[in-house]
Amino acid sequence: MGTALAFYLASAIAVIASARVITSANPVHALLYLVVSLLAVAMIFFSLGAPFAAALEMIVYAGAIMVLFVFVVMMLNLGSAVIEQEKQWLSPRAWAGPAILSLMLLVELFRSIGMESDHMVNTATIGPKAVGVSLFGPYVLAVELASMLLLSAMVAAWHLGRPNDHKE
């Protein structure tokens, strides 16, 4: 029952945070909620018995990718009003909502660490080894093809991102 509660709570937080992502007019607010939403998804993985996937979600999405997003958005807003804007972002109105949701997730995480593992779908916990075995076993071709996918995405982005000096 404990993990069921954790699952539903984390799902609720994920849904609320995602709804706030698309309703926020301010990009930085939206991004903060997106981080919370990804953290909540990590918590969902954790409650389903996949701690490795949860850790990856945390490190890759909430950590690396979202920090890049936040940096880019902040850098795009360079200008005279930038200090005023930074002050505005530090007001409680901007961070209170995401902070409360994150705090709820943290409490939930602490609660579930101490508990017996009675996962809802899986009886076993899926660790890094199981993920590795299936990635490089039956799914090895998919992994190879994913590298082609990244190559094509990179080439496309690089080509389209070139400065266009045609009009000069």
Partner: peptide, 13 residues
Amino acid sequence: IGLELLSVSLFGL
């Protein structure tokens, strides 16, 4: 994965 390989390259094309 095939669909994405196709779509992402097509986006660039």
